[in-house]
Write a protein that binds this DNA or RNA. Structure first.
Lengths: 240, 240
DNA sequence: CGATCTCTTGAGTTCCCTCAACTTAGGTGG
DNA sequence: CCACCTAAGTTGAGGGAACTCAAGAGATCG
């Protein structure tokens, strides 16, 4: 079995076997979380860096009104909060969406690894830039896209990210997100998400079943979303 | 006159006079931009890091429909795109909102400076984390806050950021943003922003004139916004 | 001192939300 | 293995927040 963290970073920089081995070692002892379990809560003191190895995780925040906003999805291979130790406390929470295996890497260990393996450092920085690009794309979606466009755009993003780590089938991929979770991520209500999904299904663009999505017509979906994959930076600059 | 970049980083780490001098030197030759001039455009090859010394700048993206979404405001002292050279092309544009003085720091120079001055590196990483916190706060605003809440929240954010670099007066500060620009940042129309501003003014919370905002009732404004300044991380961890 | 932005206000429309009921799918214990 | 229970998904009706279109008032600048 391949380590998704290694697989992801290999897509962002050229890693030697030695680099890969170091990453494997650092993430060798993951911890198991059940669905809806918080890895860390808003207000907590930041700890080690998290690396998701199996399952899905999200960043979220609960507002005074009680509503929830999800700010990011983390799938296998995704890491978070490289320099987080610099901050006094977390400004949001992180929670497992499905049962998940998550490794933690201490700050000192991380720093030593990045010093000894410049390729890893480079890949980590690139990953950070991609994450920022994704956040900006979410801001654009929330600000200027209609509900159907937003849903379509998110599915395009998640499909490509899943494909990067080899989790997609033929026009289909596992998406363990309930409509309520999608609503919390897209800033909509679960009821409205449901209507939009029906619309996209009838339009022949995509169909979401419990636990998976089928992309019926990729061209149509991309067109609805106004999707431009450039922001995921799958094409990186290979020379320093 | 003080360099706002130095001033900002001093708020994020303890800098020696030597550190400060290095920063001054690196940003000594800023370039002048006029309002609405692009510093770099979507699709361009990323160049050096930008450091804003005077004026306001924004990141934005134009959608196929022709609407614009602003994803970030940069005020004096703000820098962007630390490791941007790793990417093949920009996924968004950066533009001066007002006339502005912006310094550029090359990748090699930046790396050398961070190596020679660990405090600077630490401050830059902290600044990056704060920027990410701001992006997440924008996502929360766009997703789950009403228009009045969103406007109030943005004003709170900008007020505190301006105060950090000494740009605020007594309950008032310079805000060189037209209502159209605010609309592009908040994902609303200029017409609706205008109505919301009137509402906030009549409520006695804040008043926006051309070029500046007066915070009439800070407590009320914070309460409307549901503002929690923690995400700006003005309280950092001082020990490594 | 006209030309051009920016701001303001009104009227009508649309998208998305709220509330509420009902159906379906999964999981658990009898 | 079925009966129940709960969570997730579906659909309808009505309301409200924000949008569109349009016109006029107020700044700002060459």
């Amino acid at each position: 079995m391949t380590n998704p963290f290694v697989q992801k970073l290999r897509g962002l920089a050229t890693l030697t076997n030695d680099d890969a081995a170091a990453l494997e070692t650092a993430t060798a002892r993951p911890r198991h979380y059940i669905a809806r379990q918080d890895l860390i809560r808003e207000g907590d003191e930041p700890g080690p860096m998290f690396v998701v190895l199996e399952g899905w995780v999200c960043r979220y925040k609960i507002l005074p009104s009680g509503t929830r906003q999800i700010m990011a999805f983390l799938m296998p291979g995704d890491a978070c909060d490289l320099h987080i130790k610099l901050l006094a406390e977390m400004d949001h929470s992180i929670q497992a969406i499905t049962t998940a295996m998550v490794a933690t890497v201490g700050k000192a260990e991380m720093q030593a690894m990045m010093l000894a393996h410049p390729n890893i450092a480079s890949a980590m920085y690139a990953a950070q830039l991609v994450d920022e690009g994704i956040m900006r794309a979410w801001i654009v979606s929330m600000g200027r896209r209609s509900a159907p466009e937003r849903v379509a755009h998110l599915i395009c993003e998640l499909y490509l990210r899943a494909r990067n780590i080899g989790l997609t089938g033929d026009g289909e991929f596992a998406l363990p997100l309930s409509q309520a979770v999608l609503a919390d991520a897209l800033g909509m209500t679960a009821v409205h998400i449901n209507r939009v999904l029906k619309e996209l299904r009838l339009a022949g663009a995509m169909a979401l079943k419990r636990g998976s999505v089928t992309i019926l017509d990729p061209v149509k979906l991309i067109q609805i979303a106004g999707f431009d994959e450039n922001y995921l930076h799958r094409r990186l600059r290979r020379v320093a």
